[in-house]
Design a protein around this nucleic acid. Structure first.
Lengths: 181, 181
DNA sequence: ACCCACACGTGAGGC
DNA sequence: TGCCTCACGTGTGGG
């Protein structure tokens, strides 16, 4: 009684034809079934919905394959396993980079301490009323007397020495004093 | 002529029964078909192979879902889109960490320069035959004369000053000379 | 010829 | 009830 018009096909494409034909005459289904009103051919309700679903899944798999650079095969299963390995690799890389960054931050901790020292120096100078000062007096034709009061900073003295060396100034006598508090 | 024993089922499970029944009597297939030798029932060759394939795909999807912490839904499609977003997030995080690490390495470039300077200092001392030297002479009851020749290193002088300060030694006169080459 | 991967339509079941 | 997702068996094309 069902499927009276077996010659009619729901779809024109040939690959769909056989599939739609594959329906037994002894149908034990108790459900009400849907027919196309025009051709009186059985048409599943969720046929195109299922088609959309498959299409979405395929496009998403293609997207998943497109964003990971390491591809071993085009297979649907290998796409997923490649994505898994890629995710694991990315996780390990993130962990490694985080560790390296943490280590480097610990290395530059001394710099932070130095900066704290510098802040302390600035606070000390403010607290004790010490003013930065540069005084220069000419002693001889080519001899200068220089007095510099600055807050202590790491490497500042070395830089000063280097600068004086670069200017060709020879250091005859250097009196160097640091005060804290 | 085909499917003479339609009452026999390939599989005992009921959900497989209807599917195996869904074969048209007007079979246009020209292919030779496979029958089970015992029951004379049609059995597709790649039935279990396809079942294994589906099973593998499902387990891989479960693995893919298990390794990413951000899950919005259990759906097959959302697993993939969640994996895509997670991969993108991981990629961005790797890029950000790499940038930060590169920046911090550029910051510590000066340290590398200082190390090169130190190597230069060592080479200079070797080349010019300068020996590291520490000489101490007692001038008074509580006055010392100290002469130190060492290779230049960044912060070494400051550390020496700090150490002397910590020992309670007061600096009366300091003569400081650096030579390069 | 075979093997494998995929797309197809469909029923079952959960919400 | 309807909507949506999944698993199923199968046909088909490429290697």
């Amino acid at each position: 009684m069902e499927y009276q018009d077996e010659d009619h096909l729901c779809f024109t494409m040939e690959e769909f034809a056989l599939a739609t034909e594959n329906v037994s005459s002894r149908q034990r289904m108790s459900r009400k079934r849907n027919y196309d009103d025009d051709t009186r051919v059985y048409k599943s309700k969720n046929l195109e919905i299922e088609r959309r679903r498959r299409e979405k899944l395929s496009t998403r798999l293609l997207m998943l394959r497109s964003i990971n650079p390491i591809i071993t095969n085009m297979n649907r299963g290998t796409i997923i396993v490649d994505a898994i390995t890629y995710i694991e690799k990315l996780q390990h890389e993130v962990q490694r980079l985080s560790q390296e960054l943490h280590q480097l931050e610990a290395t530059s901790e001394k710099t932070a301490e130095a900066k704290v020292d510098e802040i302390d120096a600035v606070e000390d100078m403010k607290h004790w009323g010490i003013q930065a000062e540069v005084r220069v007096a000419q002693i001889d034709e080519n001899k200068l007397w220089v007095k510099i009061i600055i807050e202590k900073k790491r490497g500042r003295f070395s830089k000063l020495m280097e600068a004086l060396n670069n200017f060709g100034i020879e250091l005859i006598d250097t009196n160097f004093t640091t005060t804290k508090g």
